[in-house]
């Protein structure tokens, strides 16, 4: 593998082939009841497995051609560069942000009322219903702003907080029935 594009094309072809095979051999037979054709009340119908089987077969074919091509030919490698550090950091930011969004509301309510009232009862009551969204949301905005500009600034914190509160108000004030994240899941 002397060419970075070549490695990536090979991996891509292998991933396509493997996922198509898994779909064809394991997933579709195990998770669809009616087969490619289906006999129902003595008439033959197209079964639920027809479309996914065709799709997976197409993926398999495309993957095979791509793999062979990647091995035989030199790819015209105009690939973007993927940075593993960036990937790991952004996954962490998203995971932390979503966890904060879901956990901070119930946690703060539990602290405040020492367990007497549950968050479930307050999820339509201000200011409790905003807690999770504002903490989690501004965390995400701040982290990505700081990450992409490579510096910390209190101005970023302020901007993240203000824009999150604005977003919360845009959705919450005009619409009675909309629930901000994570209030629909509590």
């Amino acid at each position: 593998m002397d060419h970075p594009g070549k490695l990536r094309e090979t991996v891509l072809g292998l991933v396509a082939i493997c996922s198509a095979l898994v779909a064809l051999v394991v997933w579709i037979p195990a998770d669809i009841d009616t087969g490619i054709v289906d006999v129902w009340r003595r008439t033959i119908r197209i079964g639920d497995a027809m479309l996914p089987s065709f799709a997976a077969a197409g993926m398999l074919l495309a993957g095979l051609v791509m793999l062979v091509r990647a091995i035989v030919l030199v790819p015209n490698g105009l690939h973007r560069v993927i940075s593993p550090v960036f990937l790991v950091t952004s996954c962490l930011v998203m995971a932390l942000g979503l966890t904060l969004m879901q956990a901070s509301g119930p946690f703060i309510v539990w602290l405040w009322f020492s367990g007497e009232i549950s968050y479930r009862q307050l999820l339509d009551t201000a200011p409790w219903k905003y807690i999770g969204f504002v903490i989690g949301g501004s965390f995400m905005i701040f982290c990505f702003t700081a990450l992409t500009s490579h510096r910390f600034s209190w101005r970023f914190v302020f901007l993240a907080l203000v824009s999150t509160v604005l977003i919360a108000l845009i959705y919450d004030l005009p619409f009675d029935n909309l629930l901000l994240p994570p209030n629909g899941d509590i």
Partner: peptide, 20 residues
């Protein structure tokens, strides 16, 4: 701009189905 757009996207998808 883009981090704000990301949170906006996330929120507008959430409010449709109220489901994480």
């Amino acid at each position: 701009l883009l981090p704000i757009v990301l949170l906006l996207t996330l929120t507008s998808v959430y409010v449709q189905g109220s489901n994480m």
